[in-house]
Amino acid sequence: MSPVADERDRIRAAMDRILSGTPERSNGALTIVGLAVEAGVPCNALTQRHTDLKNEFYDKAGACGGTPDSEQRLRKQVRRLKELRAADAEEIARLKADVEALVGALHQATVENQLLHQQLADRTAVLRPLSSQHQPQKRTDRLGHS
């Protein structure tokens, strides 16, 4: 028997085991990967050399009434994980925008602080402290007279 004929026999036997719900080497998924694992052949044996067996497997799997519960649960979990990943990507984008805004505000405050320190050191500028209520204070002379 040639390796190709043996390969076809192994694929057919694996197909029967999976479709009857008695896989020996795979998780029993109704996929080409599951069939290849069960048959002990590379995936490209089904996608390139034995496309007729691949099509036959899909036809028989569809006639069996759908996908197994385990595969449905996994597909549902994959969908949920994709949704979570998309939500995480949106949150990351928002956080990056927040970081940029905060860095800008920090830079502006730093520049203003440096300017105030420079003015204080030069003693050329008149700095007036703001009251806690931010109202202008009366101007008084050194003796406290208005």
Rank of each mutant, 00 (worst) to 15 (best):
T47F: 14
Q48R: 14
Q48Y: 08
T51H: 04
T51A: 11
D52M: 00
D52R: 01
K54H: 03
K54W: 02
N55W: 04
E56K: 01
E56I: 03
F57C: 04
F57L: 08
F57G: 02
Y58L: 05
D59F: 12
D59K: 15
K60P: 05
K60C: 01
G62S: 04
A63M: 00
A63C: 00
G66L: 11
T67G: 05
T67P: 07
D69Q: 07
E71Q: 15
Q72W: 11
Q72P: 00
Q72H: 08
L74F: 12
Q77E: 14
Q77V: 10
Q77K: 14
V78T: 07
R79E: 11
R79M: 11
R80V: 14
L81K: 09
K82V: 10
E83L: 13
E83W: 05
L84Q: 10
L84W: 00
R85F: 14
A87G: 01
E90F: 07
E91D: 09
R94D: 04
R94C: 01
K96T: 13
K96Q: 08
D98V: 05
V99M: 02
E100L: 15
A101M: 08
V103D: 11
V103T: 09
G104D: 14
G104H: 09
A105N: 03
H107K: 10
A109F: 13
T110P: 00
V111W: 10
Q119F: 05
L120A: 11
D122V: 05
D122Q: 14
D122R: 10
A125V: 06
V126E: 09
L127P: 07
L127V: 12
R128M: 06
R128T: 06
P129Y: 07
L130G: 12
S131P: 01
S131A: 11
S132V: 03
Q133S: 14
H134C: 15
